[in-house]
Design a protein around this nucleic acid. Structure first.
Length: 859
RNA sequence: GCCUGGGUGGCGGAAUUGGUAGACGCAAGGGACUUAAAAUCCCUCGGGGUUCGCCCUGUGCGGGUUCGAUUCCCGCCCCAGGCACCA
């Protein structure tokens, strides 16, 4: 009896071998074509999860496949190591974030190694290492020099009890996630990156990213949110001042009967000052500004407002427009002021009805006549201009341009483009992040840290408390410094950078992770960039990918990099999901808790809930480690790749894993049970006549090479590639090797087996490496080249032709492949089964599709 | 509301350019091997009918184009994701 498949043993063995052979270490001085494959790096949370297993398995197949195709493959891995969980761990259990992070990295690195991924570990980087964040500070300073960084006041979520800033995702239903107190908005000085400078280019290049999924492009475009329109000035009554608004509907300008200001707009308080409205405006503004962002943006928020007591003048109609403060106007979009056209904007309509404001119809539809007093809602569609001075009678769409031209001539407006995209606020009042390299001096003001003084080292000994103050602010040794300009005592900036900053350039840093003379070594970065294939979760479709694109353009303009875009091709993989179990009383349950289908606490029957993303909170996670322990890394990889195509969500199935394991055992036995027979057989070289059975097997072998190559190369559809390999293995199993003596037969089978093993190797690298050796090979299977199909072997002499009558399948016949159309037609018409459906009817037409089918149309 | 995807057996999914719908796997059922079980191997497996040859029907729903539609077009329903008082 041959040895059985023991994944643990062989996986460890080959992982060590690859490591010793330095199989995956690459450099740029090679004559081979480069291929840069990158998967999104993980946050070192403690342990890898199934999402990582899936993401990195997909990447590893491509990396190994490209390697076997002869490419010089850069496949790095590292750690997105700054961030809040480390700080939370410190608050909860007193571990220092650095210790926590590095211990997690150690553990997760072991787990990744245990999966057998083909990383060049020499290039490993952790973003919390001084060497990495030093150069990020350098980039920050460069951006500061170029005017891409600025500081301004901005609102943040603030918890008064915890005395801390909260990220949007830490606000749960308007309450602080930690203490449950109502979250308020607090205005703080914040650092910003001027991503809006690149808005147009970021949008423009969306259409050039042909290797990106359409939906990601759509999301990015959506996020940038370009809209074209006009900026129009409204002079204030009785003051030498004006309000500028942005509108996409300049055609409705004659219908603008009042003005709405955002509560945050300083004009709101300014205009009401000294009027009877002052108090009302003040209390309204206070009330709205205090609300948290979630309550504020609720879709059922009642439209409310207050009159400011001031008026402005419609520049085209000279109409006197009351100025209101309204809770639905956003300070962040446009100018924080909106011209209100109640007849042609639903929000303005509702507001006007509520406060009894004037409505003037300025666009008339063709079908009916609008009367403002009968209108139940705003009219938003096209029509003809009315009540609009000399624009009357014009179609409103054409009038847009005409009105803007008119405003430009009059000097009270201009054509404008507005973006939804806002500048990127990067200030975080956190400890575990990259310190912003700025110094504040009483006499010199804001002073950037000189390049020669970098890095600004994040101090190790700080007290991390759950409540009150920012850890860095309380660290005197860090804060107190001297001004680089005048030498007098000064204070350091205590904000750290958003962790999205680190992930905005790590892909470039992988090309030269040790470089300490510059953020990027130009020879290396120019050799490897752009990333040929980037793989990661769809959850990063907007922010991370947009920021990384922005950084690449900014780095390009600093002449640190030559490419315009970082990622040539993008694959966004779906989530890993699993069935959930729920007790009506006790909530989510782990599968192992459930006793005979009942809740362990109340013994009520457990409901099998819907399939949801694996998550600790829904208790439907599967730990990769136990999976590997039980089945090995190859089975884990195979299952993840086989269960669904990468871009779709993957539904977890324990039986599916079992099936993947079963298949690997089947492959194992195919070789291991017969290797004494096969070891010294030379694979068939294609130079002799074979009997029919062997011709068919050879056909299958080479057709499988063709299909698997296509599925991996052009589609990343590993599930169909695997099923093709399964078919080949099934075909090989049709032969009884033990009783086989014919050399030619053995040669054809050996060719088939070697092919199956080769094709499977990027997917299940350990088992195939072992079997490759058993097949008598000396070198690693990953030094073998990817098989090419023999075109001659997949030429068919006879092919199956389908015979249809009136489009319905009636018969099948086998004909010589080169049969002329007339011949096929004749065969079809005389076919016994087909004749039953043709006889007694008039043949109207016969369609012959070469090599496919014949369709006889009868009446 | 707008923008993307998607809807195919009991389940995950195939069908690549308009040409045999359901590859491959899972589950289920049957059989072989075994004292027995596991493992393994073989067979069946959309629904309905059947004289076991086959026949009818079937890819969310309703139309259309075509010799022929899961695939293309129009209208609708449902699901998932993203965006959203964006002026």
């Amino acid at each position: 009896m041959a040895e059985t498949y023991n994944p643990e043993e062989i996986e460890n063995k080959w992982q060590e071998y690859w490591n010793k052979q330095k199989l995956f270490e690459v450099s740029e001085d090679s004559g081979r074509k480069k291929y840069y494959l990158l998967e999104m790096f993980p946050y070192p949370s403690g342990r890898i999860h199934m999402g990582h297993v899936r993401n990195y398995s997909i990447g590893d197949v491509i990396a190994r496949y490209k390697m076997m195709q002869g490419y010089n493959v850069l496949h790095p891995m590292g750690w997105d190591a700054f961030g809040m969980p480390a700080e939370n761990a410190a608050i909860e259990s007193g571990v220092h974030p650095a210790k926590w992070t590095y211990e997690n990295i150690d553990y997760m690195k072991k787990q990744l190694k245990r999966m057998g991924f083909s990383y060049d570990w020499n290039r490993e980087l952790a973003t919390c290492d001084v060497l990495y964040y030093k150069w990020e500070q350098w980039i920050f300073l460069k951006m500061y020099e170029k005017g891409l960084v600025y500081k301004r006041k901005s609102f943040v979520n603030w918890c008064e009890r915890c005395q801390t800033v909260l990220a949007n995702e830490q606000v749960e239903g308007g309450l602080c996630w930690r203490c449950g107190l109502e979250v308020t908005q607090k205005e703080l000085e914040q650092w910003f990156f001027k991503i809006t400078d690149y808005a147009e280019e970021l949008l423009d290049y969306c259409d050039k990213l042909t290797g990106w999924p359409e939906r990601v492009i759509a999301m990015q475009k959506n996020w940038i949110g370009k809209s074209e329109g006009a900026a129009i000035d409204f002079p204030l009554e009785g003051r030498d001042q004006k309000i500028t608004v942005f509108t996409t509907r300049p055609d409705t300008l004659f219908g603008a009967t009042f003005m709405s200001l955002a509560p945050e707009n300083p004009l709101a308080l300014e205009l009401s000052k000294g009027t009877a409205q002052e108090e009302a405006v003040k209390s309204f503004v206070e009330k709205v500004v205090k609300q948290d962002k979630i309550t504020r943006s609720a879709d059922d928020l009642e439209k409310e407002g207050v009159f400011t007591g001031a008026y402005c003048i419609n520049p085209v109609s000279d109409h006197k427009m009351p100025i209101y403060v309204a809770n639905f106007v956003l300070m962040e979009y446009g100018t924080g002021a909106v011209m209100a056209v109640p007849t042609h904007d639903q929000r303005d309509f509702e507001f006007a009805v509520k406060y009894g404001l004037e409505r003037i119809v300025v666009i008339q539809p063709k079908e009916e006549e609008l009367r403002q007093e009968e209108m139940r809602e705003a009219y938003l569609d096209e029509g003809v201009m009315v009540n609009s001075g000399h624009f009357n009678g014009m179609h409103n769409v054409k009038a847009m341009d005409a009105i803007i031209n008119y405003l430009e001539e009059k000097g009270c407006g201009k054509r404008t483009v507005n973006y939804r995209l806002k500048d990127w606020g990067i200030s975080r009042q956190r400890y575990w992040g990259n310190p912003i390299p700025i110094i504040y001096c009483k006499s010199c003001g804001t002073v950037p840290v000189p390049y020669s003084d970098l890095p600004v080292i994040l101090p190790h000994d700080v007290e991390i408390k759950g409540m009150g103050g920012f850890p860095l602010k309380d660290c005197k040794e860090f804060v107190d410094t001297t001004c680089p300009k005048c030498g007098s005592s000064a204070q350091r900036e205590t904000d750290t950078m958003d962790t999205f900053v680190e992930s905005s350039w790590y892909f470039a840093r992988y090309t030269c992770p040790q470089c300490d003379t510059s953020p990027l070594n130009s020879n290396k970065v120019d050799f490897w960039m752009p990333v040929d294939q980037y793989i990661g979760g769809i959850e990063h479709a907007v922010l991370h990918l947009l920021y990384a694109r922005f950084f690449t353009k900014a780095l390009r303009d600093m002449e640190l990099i030559k490419v315009d875009e970082p990622f040539k091709n993008l694959l966004t993989q779906g989530m890993v999901c699993k069935e959930t179990l729920k007790c009506e009383v006790h909530g989510w349950l782990y599968p192992e808790e459930v006793v005979e289908g009942c809740c362990p606490h109340c013994h009520q029957p457990v409901q099998v809930g819907r399939i949801e993303k694996m998550s600790k909170s829904t208790k439907n996670v599967v730990d990769p480690e136990s999976l590997i322990k039980h089945y090995g890394a190859d089975t884990a990889r195979l299952f993840c790749l086989f269960a669904a195509p990468p871009e779709k969500d993957l539904d977890w199935s324990d039986q599916g894993v079992e099936g993947a394991f079963r298949f690997l055992n089947r492959v194992w036995r195919m070789v291991a049970d017969h290797f004494s027979i096969l070891e010294h057989v030379k694979p068939f070289d294609g130079n002799a006549a074979l009997d029919e059975r062997l011709v068919k097997l050879r056909f299958k072998t080479h057709a499988t090479i063709k299909k698997v190559t296509h599925d991996i190369e052009d589609r990343f559809h590993f599930n169909t590639a695997i099923s093709a390999i399964m078919e080949l293995v099934n075909a090989i199993y049709q032969f009884d090797l033990t009783s086989m003596k014919d050399e030619q037969e053995l040669a054809v089978i050996k060719e088939a087996i070697e092919t199956a093993v080769l094709l499977l190797s990027p997917i299940a690298p350990h088992i195939t490496e072992e079997l490759w050796k058993k097949l008598g090979k000396q070198e690693s299977i990953f030094k073998a080249s990817w098989p090419h199909y023999d075109a001659a072997a997949i030429i068919e002499e006879e092919i199956l032709i389908v015979i249809q009558v009136n489009g319905k399948l009636r018969s099948r016949v086998t004909v010589p492949v080169d049969s002329p159309e007339e011949e096929i037609k004749k065969i079809a018409l005389s076919d016994e089964k087909a004749r039953k459906w043709i006889e007694g009817k008039e043949i109207k037409k016969v369609i012959v599709v070469p090599k496919k089918l014949v369709n006889v149309v009868v009446k």
